[in-house]
């Protein structure tokens, strides 16, 4: 399975390549990608440097570069998305990751040789939906939303007209990607429109007598005691009141970790595993990629005797939200 790794900037890209990524995905510095945060992503020039680095990988192995143009092209500025596709074609990237049918349509017609991957933001969760994108735009691969159980992934892989890539590790979207606008409901900005979820500009950290309140768009998302570590106020991971009870009504702060599913995913015919986290530091990227590289290499060397070792799991837990991990939707009882 190909190890697909995130890079929000050049140091992260180098960290991913140096630690054993098979492919790295990046975004341009604007609202055309779903991690549109201040100080993140690649200008034209930085993207050229990224391309140089993956091509001259010191490890000697060809590393592929993917570019995500995976938000929904907005009526006010459709040409910006068109330009992003043009740039991908000019650079000769190894894949363009897109979700919007107008972006896919333009890319497939204008650049028939451009390798297209369907972004997770397209919310394609079933064989008929995948067929739609395959038949109309000739996509070669799709990234599956984090909503399917392992059994459903296995069955879908048998029938899918295209290669499948699944999320392996990182922040966990609880909602079907591309089908969640909780963020714009509270802040006016969503992943679909501007590539932002719970944007920093809407966040407020407020010290109180008892600890810390976190707010988004003025609304209280969570309230932390002195002894608790305050987490970023993402709407799906706050503590709210339901039926007079305060709890993490949607999900706790936790990260997805599928390290121990490597054998099942490989046997199901999954082509690639994706590490989430273009917003993360180079040190984070380096550590996660290193552990996953080691685990995948171990599996390849001895598929029948594969077990996860405690060192890997402890290393990944340390890098996880709330220091805890979950199998998420892959594990049916979680649902």
């Amino acid at each position: 399975m190909e190890l697909v790794c995130p890079a929000g900037n050049l140091p992260s890209l180098k960290a991913a390549v140096d630690n054993g990524a098979d492919a790295v995905y990046i975004g341009f510095r604007d609202e055309t990608n779903a991690r549109h945060f201040a100080g993140l992503n690649f200008s034209d020039q930085r993207a050229m440097k990224a391309l140089d680095y993956v091509n001259k990988n010191p490890r000697g192995k060809k590393v592929r570069l993917f570019v995500a143009v995976n938000t929904y092209a907005q009526a006010s500025n459709w040409n910006r998305w068109k330009k992003a596709v043009d740039m991908c074609a000019d650079f000769g990237v190894d894949a363009l990751i897109a979700a919007d049918i107008s972006v896919l349509d333009y890319a497939s017609k204008r650049y028939p040789d451009l390798n297209l991957h369907l972004s997770v933001q397209a919310s394609a969760t079933n064989q008929a939906s995948l067929s739609f994108y395959h038949d109309h735009f000739g996509i070669k691969r799709a990234v599956l939303p984090r909503v399917l159980s392992l059994k459903q992934v296995e069955r879908l892989a048998q029938k899918s007209p295209v290669e499948l890539e699944v999320f392996a590790f990182g922040s966990l979207c609880i909602m079907a990607e591309g089908r969640c606008i909780l963020s714009s409901y509270v802040t006016g900005e969503s992943p679909n429109t501007v590539g932002a979820c719970s944007p920093a500009s809407a966040v407020r950290w407020q010290t109180t007598a008892n600890g810390m309140d976190t707010r988004l768009g003025g609304l209280l998302i969570d309230r932390f005691d002195h002894h608790e570590q305050a987490g970023y106020p993402t709407l799906c991971k706050g503590r709210f009141t339901v039926n007079d009870k305060v709890s993490h009504a949607i999900e706790e702060p936790t990260s997805l970790n599928t390290l121990n599913l490597i054998p099942q995913l490989h046997q199901a015919g999954i082509s690639a595993v994706k590490i989430e986290g273009r917003q993360r530091s180079p040190a984070y990227v380096a550590e996660v990629v290193r552990i996953w590289r080691e685990a995948l290499d171990h599996y390849r060397a001895n598929p029948d005797g594969f077990t996860t070792n405690d060192r890997w799991m402890a290393g990944l837990s340390r890098l996880s939200e709330g220091s805890q991990t979950t199998l998420g939707a892959y594990n049916r009882p979680w649902q």
Binding site: Y72, Q74, A75, W78, I101, S102, D105, N126, S129, F132
Partner: peptide, 30 residues
């Protein structure tokens, strides 16, 4: 969902889309 779009387009029958089908531009509608 695009699954239904796939079936309806294949059948060649006129159809509608609901608010969860992501159509954010005239180009996508086209």
């Amino acid at each position: 969902d695009m699954a239904a779009v796939h079936y309806l387009a294949k059948a060649g029958v006129p159809f509608s889309t609901g608010p969860s089908v992501n159509l954010y531009s005239a180009e996508a509608l086209q």
